[in-house]
Amino acid sequence: MYVAVKGGERAIDNAHRLLAHARRGDPAVPEVAPAQIREQLTLAVDRVMTEGSLYDRDLAAIAIKQARGDLVEAAFLVRAFRTTLPRFGASEPVDTGAMQVARRVSATFKDIPGGQVLGPTFDYTHRLVDFLLEAGADVPEPAHAPAGETAMPRVTDLLGADDLIERNPPGDPDAPVPDLTREPLDLPAGRDLRLQNLARGDEGFILALGYSTQRGFGRSHPFAGEIRLGEVEVEFVAEDVGFAVPLGEITVTECQMVNQFKGSATEPPRFTRGYGLAFGHCERKTMGMALVDRALRAEELGEEVKAPAQDEEFVLMHSDNVQATGFVEHLKLPHYVDFQAELGLIRQMRREIAERQAGGEPLKEAAE
């Protein structure tokens, strides 16, 4: 490390001060507070929570400020903090079917039980820079839907009732659940572990892979069966009382992709599934995740594996931006000894080639 260099520790301390100065920016401009980030940069907060594997809006906001808006660095900070927390056990599976929906759209059916709920979305904006934001214009109050509970069955459940989509295998409550946050990734991985990996994976990488499946690099003809955003209750089985107790509610985004499947000699034609789930409002992430999830099921469904998004090792080993950052950015650290060894080797090879040339040996043979 640079500490080994004469004066290195003093230089590092000064680099920290320079970082704090750069983070603050112009002192004449009011400093942004974590609460402002939490409330106004919510999509950035949601991404950091998802890729940092910890649902804590306040912590994610602080990490974004500390990282100067670098969301990958912020996710790294959140993961590091997560390792210091005590672990009491695992919560019960959340029931997204009972979600308090803020947004719910389907691209497969126009009229669905419970209706389409557009909610907060960029989908219908003009993608023009709104300079009124600079002036601090007043935000109009939205119209609220009438109070009352409306049943919103999943679109995939409607298809499943007619046996038009593959069935979800029944879960075994006694089966151990792998935990990617505590155990290293082991290949081949089951679907539960793959989904954990994709949820923590870099949004841009997952998006690119999902896009690749649509361009022909993978067997995929998807329909967005349903995307829903809302609050779900988290429950935990307390040993002293013997039953599940609610811990609170979290916001999640769920995406269920409906994919074509031609069937087989033993199975009638049915649609297949792709799935994505993430903390907060992360539609782009969960859609890409659902596309890649389906692509990674190629071998399971008897399809030829020939595209990057279908290659389990390629996808899972390269999707984690924290791990990727470590491998790439470590190249900035001192490699003086390694480079000097390489430099000495190439100089020796060049000397040997020059000596052979001087002796009349052809360059090609000398190089060999």
Rank of each mutant, 00 (worst) to 15 (best):
F223V: 01
A224V: 09
E226M: 05
I227Q: 02
R228I: 03
R228H: 11
G230W: 07
E231H: 14
E233Y: 12
V234H: 03
E239T: 06
V241E: 08
A244D: 06
A244R: 01
P246R: 08
P246W: 09
L247C: 05
L247F: 14
L247E: 03
G248E: 10
E249G: 11
I250A: 05
I250K: 09
T251G: 00
T253L: 02
T253N: 01
E254T: 13
C255L: 06
Q256H: 11
Q256N: 09
Q256R: 10
N259W: 04
Q260I: 01
F261A: 11
A265K: 15
A265R: 15
E267V: 09
T272S: 07
T272A: 11
T272V: 14
R273P: 07
R273M: 13
G274H: 10
Y275E: 05
A278P: 02
A278L: 12
H281Y: 12
C282R: 15
C282G: 08
E283N: 02
R284W: 02
R284T: 13
K285V: 02
K285T: 11
G288M: 04
M289P: 01
A290H: 06
L291F: 11
V292E: 02
V292Q: 05
V292W: 15
D293I: 07
R294C: 00
A295W: 03
L301R: 14
L301Y: 10
L301Q: 03
G302E: 02
E303R: 15
E303F: 13
E303S: 01
E303M: 13
E304K: 13
V305P: 07
V305E: 05
K306A: 14
K306E: 09
A309M: 08
A309H: 08
D311E: 14
E312D: 14
E313V: 02
M317C: 08
M317P: 00
H318W: 08
D320L: 06
D320H: 08
N321Q: 13
N321R: 08
N321F: 04
V322G: 00
V322F: 01
Q323T: 15
T325M: 12
F327W: 07
F327M: 10
F327C: 00
V328G: 01
H330N: 11
H330F: 04
H330D: 12
K332G: 03
L333I: 03
P334N: 14
H335C: 05
H335P: 00
V337L: 10
Q340G: 01
Q340C: 04
A341I: 14
E342N: 02
E342I: 02
E342W: 04
L343H: 07
G344K: 06
G344E: 09
I346T: 13
I346C: 03
